[in-house]
Deep mutational scan, measured.
Amino acid sequence: HYVEVNGKKIQATSAEEAEKIAKKFAKIYNATVLDLGNYYKVT
């Protein structure tokens, strides 16, 4: 599981952790979290 933010991949140990990381970055960048199955993308 990982999160992609601005083209950078951030490794996460679980889907739950990946979701938390994605939501945190989405809040910082006022962005949207896309759940793409095996990873989250912040756009």
Rank of each mutant, 00 (worst) to 15 (best):
H1V: 10
H1M: 12
H1I: 11
Y2F: 10
Y2W: 15
V3L: 05
V3W: 03
V3D: 00
E4P: 00
E4H: 04
E4W: 08
E4T: 04
E4Y: 08
V5A: 02
V5T: 01
V5E: 00
N6H: 13
N6W: 15
N6C: 15
N6P: 02
N6L: 14
N6V: 05
G7S: 04
G7C: 10
G7K: 03
K8C: 15
K8L: 13
K8G: 05
K9R: 14
K9D: 01
K9G: 02
K9V: 13
I10A: 00
I10S: 01
I10M: 06
I10P: 00
I10Y: 11
Q11W: 15
Q11P: 13
Q11T: 12
A12I: 05
A12P: 01
A12V: 09
A12E: 00
T13F: 10
T13H: 13
T13M: 11
T13N: 13
T13D: 12
T13I: 11
S14E: 02
S14K: 02
S14H: 03
S14T: 10
S14L: 03
A15N: 09
A15F: 08
A15D: 05
A15I: 14
A15E: 05
A15H: 14
E16F: 09
E16H: 10
E17M: 10
E17Y: 05
E17W: 08
E17P: 00
A18T: 00
A18I: 02
A18W: 05
A18F: 04
A18P: 00
E19A: 12
E19P: 00
E19Y: 15
E19C: 15
K20D: 09
K20G: 07
I21G: 00
I21Q: 02
I21N: 00
A22T: 02
A22V: 05
A22F: 05
A22R: 01
K23Q: 13
K23M: 12
K24Y: 15
K24M: 15
K24F: 15
K24G: 08
K24N: 10
F25L: 15
F25Y: 13
F25I: 14
F25G: 01
F25K: 00
F25N: 03
F25C: 14
A26V: 06
K27W: 11
K27C: 12
K27N: 09
I28V: 08
I28Y: 14
I28M: 15
I28N: 06
I28F: 14
I28A: 10
Y29V: 05
Y29F: 13
Y29A: 06
N30I: 04
N30L: 06
A31L: 15
A31H: 09
T32D: 11
V33C: 11
V33I: 13
V33S: 01
V33P: 02
L34D: 07
L34S: 07
L34M: 10
L34H: 09
D35L: 13
D35P: 07
D35I: 13
L36G: 05
L36P: 01
L36I: 05
L36N: 07
L36A: 04
L36D: 03
G37A: 06
G37H: 04
N38Q: 11
N38S: 13
N38K: 09
N38A: 10
N38H: 13
N38R: 08
N38L: 09
Y39P: 00
Y39H: 10
Y40C: 11
Y40N: 03
Y40L: 13
Y40E: 04
Y40R: 02
Y40P: 04
K41C: 14
K41Q: 12
V42F: 01
V42S: 02
V42M: 03
V42D: 05
T43A: 10
T43F: 12
T43G: 08
T43Q: 12
